[in-house]
Design a protein around this nucleic acid. Structure first.
Lengths: 203, 203
DNA sequence: CTTATTTGGAAACGATCGTTCTCCAACTGT
DNA sequence: ACAGTTGGAGAACGATCGTTTCCAAATAAG
């Protein structure tokens, strides 16, 4: 007889760990160490898995990395969208997006680093799949800035005279640059003074 | 009798290659591939040396990297200082500095990448010597922006109302961010539209 | 029950890593 | 000419890399 559960369990021994929990640990290792310096041994230990289990869940090291990247993007995008959703107008939403990056770029999370930036630097030039993911991530962020500026210009909170496309790209540069600086150390106040100054671009 | 040359040659067989030429090749490999992905085999081939010669000139792989980093900084700093020196006032010198980074961040040199950014992302968190070099490089650039803004405020080309410290850090973020974006591809026009928009920060 | 299928765990694989060693050639000062 | 010193070339080193294999355990289906 068929399994009555809503989701029928597949045959064979069930997996003893949640893939997403394991990927969350992998994200930390890949972010801090980078792709090449993160060895399978480190990943095994951080994810609490043995080599056998790892290679049954993922084809190879790159597959682990890409899955971690995709989960990172999914989680971060959800948090960012939620933060932006609380904004009251276009200018406020731009500020919240900048603040979101400034928050991530200092202290512990700043030192841990951004998987997108790390992938762009370390992998994108030689790996097409990585490059495509980085490109899509950057394009999404730029388009988001662009849309928020547009909304601000419509609701009167952002000057209609500014070049929307150039400013969106500029704000994207600022956020990616903050992620680089965050690796070696500006403190919270410095990161926030940067985005305060950047808000001038909307006048 | 003593050697009559101005610079007395040291004893032993003379080196058949110029260290600086070899480092220039190493810079390309380390910039494109990153520290960990750049193998000694690749470095050997690019630098035109055998393992023996490499390890007689440098203590280990990290020493090669740090020497390449130092030469990279020396060359880039000289070019940047020359470019800035041609500026007519503070605002023009800031623009030239931004243009210098925009120029490096697109096309072939953009794909090759910046050794400072790469080192910040890949090495700085775990290696104190690398972190110190990155920190000093960032501090120099920030101080330079700061000084140029100050000069502009003195000669009337930059508004006295702007926050010099915050704006200098912001411009530094923009340049480092451009280097990240340059890995995956904005073209020349896009890179320059970013710095044109950034000049608004000086009004 | 048996059979098929999948996972967990650990040992083991070949390949490549960074590094060292060895031998000889090229140069110095005496 | 000779001893001393360093560089060039390439073989070889142990360590670690990413990956595979093997076997016991766990589950579904017949």
């Amino acid at each position: 007889m068929m399994n009555a559960d809503a989701a029928t369990r597949p045959p064979g021994r069930p997996r003893e760990f949640a893939i997403e929990d394991a990927l969350d640990k992998a994200i930390v290792v890949f972010s801090e160490r980078g792709y090449h310096a993160a060895s399978i041994s480190e990943l095994k230990e951080a994810m609490g898995l043995t080599a056998g289990s790892l290679y049954k869940a993922f084809k190879d090291k790159k597959a682990i990395f890409l899955a971690a990247f995709d989960r990172y993007k999914q989680v971060r995008n959800a948090l960012l969208d939620q933060e932006i959703g609380a904004g009251t107008n276009g200018r406020d939403r731009v500020f919240r997006m900048l603040r979101f990056y400034a928050e991530a770029s200092h202290g512990e999370s700043g030192r841990q680093g951004c998987l997108v930036v790390g992938t762009a630097i370390e992998l994108a030039v030689y790996d097409a799949e990585a490059a495509e993911r980085v490109g899509r991530s950057m394009a999404r962020s730029e388009a988001l800035f662009n849309r928020l500026i547009h909304e601000g210009q419509a609701d009167g909170s952002i000057s209609k005279r500014i070049d929307r496309n150039a400013t969106a790209r500029l704000l994207l540069s600022v956020t990616q640059g903050l992620r680089v600086l965050g690796k070696t150390g500006p403190d919270r106040d410095q990161a926030f003074s940067v985005i305060d100054a950047a808000m001038k671009l909307l006048d």
